[in-house]
Structure formats: structure tokens, C-alpha cells
Amino acid sequence: MSGERTQSALLGALGVALMLGAWEVIGQNRLVGMTWPPFSSVMAFLFDPSRQALFSRALTATLGSAGLGYLIGGLAGLAFAMLGQILPVLRPGTDRATAVIHAIPSIALAPIFIVLLSREAAPTALAALNAFFVFYVAGASGFASSSQTQRDLMAALGASGTKRFFHVDLPAAFPGIVSGMKLAVPAALIGAIIGEWFGAPRGLGILIVNAMQNFQIPLLWSVVVLAATTSLVLFSAMTLLERIVHERYR
């Protein structure tokens, strides 16, 4: 088991090294033109002390709106899923409403949010919307994941609806909800960054748009690397949490 894990970690590291090596070679030799800088120059740009303030301000802003959106969307998604569980009549309705909301591309909704709320609130709103969907799906399928025998047992023990929910349905849903918590991290980050494209005062999304429009290629790549790394780090941390919960609740 731990041997397998070590092997998979080594293979993963090898894959990343190969990818970064190819990136470097393509960049150094300008194989795909000027817009592909070598990895080393992107790193040099990213860690240049004079730009630390810029990057940390943008990252803080994006993480702030993504985090707040994640929280709002997560709570709303779980509450909506719980509603469908406690009042099964509403379940088809909550399913459909969530699917319809999710079917609309968030990029189309962003202008609406800006008009309805404000430029500052759009990143949070889009992050919340993305997280909402993931949390709803995780919650709704999670609450239904207790076994028929467990539900029969609760009925035969004379459990009330709330007793059953808190003793069986909710704990049985934890593994699914934690998987949702993991998947919602990149979803919320994407929402925040897209929201920022529409003129938020600061954030990674703004840096991306500015860099692109002003042809600041190293800046563009640096911000993308920063966003991707942040997302991967948070995702990995959630994977750890997920493993612990799955071990305990399954």
C-alpha cells in the first residue's frame, strides 16, 4: 500500500518534471513563437521581489472573493439539498432548478450580476454560483447514500425523521460532501477569476486581462502559473481531508 503510494508519487514527480522540461525546451528554442516563454523566465518573473506586492495583492483579492463565494455557495447548496431530502416532494424541483442554473454559462451571467450587484461583488457571486452546484450535487447524492437496510433499521427502531437524518442520512453523506468540498475549490476559483474579468478593482483575473491586452507575455504566464498552483495546493489539501473522512465514514 505505502509502496504503491511511493511509486505513484515518484511517477507523478517524473511526469511534472518531464512537462516542465518540455516547457523549458519549447520556450528556449521558440518552437511555438514569442508567446511561449521558457519556464525559467516565467519563474524569474514570478519571484522578482519588485512584483511581490502586485502578486500578493491580486492573489489575496481573488482568494478573498473565491473563499467568500465558496462559503456562501456551499452553505446554500447544502441547504437546498437538505430541503430536497427533508421534503421529498421538493426534490425534483430542487434538482431541476439547480441543473438549469448550472446550464447557463457563468460568463453569460456575469454582466447580470454586475448590473444587479456591483463590479466588486461579481467575483464572489460567480464563485458562489459555481460552488453552489457542486455542493448541491454532493449533498443531494450524499443524503441518499444510506443503505435501504439502514433506513429499514431506523424505521423499525421507531426513529423520527429528524433522528434518522442526524443519525444516518447526514453521517452517510459526509464522504460525498467532502468530495464535493474538494471539487468546489477549483470551481469557486474559476468563478472568481471570470468575475474579475468584468472589471473588478483587483485580482488575478484583472492581471490576466491586463497582461493579455498589453501583450505582457511573462506576466500573463506568471499569473496563470500562480492561479494554477494555488488551485492545486488547495485541491491537494482537500484530498487529504477527503481521505481521512472516507476512511472514517465508509
Binding site: S147, T149, Q150, D152, L153, A156, L157, H167, P171, R250
Partner: peptide, 12 residues
């Protein structure tokens, strides 16, 4: 009191 073929114990 009831016991089933599937033990229906709560794994957590």
C-alpha cells in the same frame, strides 16, 4: 428489536 441479514451497522 430487529436484526437483518445485512448487519446494517453504522460504519462511522
Amino acid at each position: 428489536g430487529i436484526a437483518f441479514q445485512e448487519h446494517a451497522l453504522l460504519p462511522w
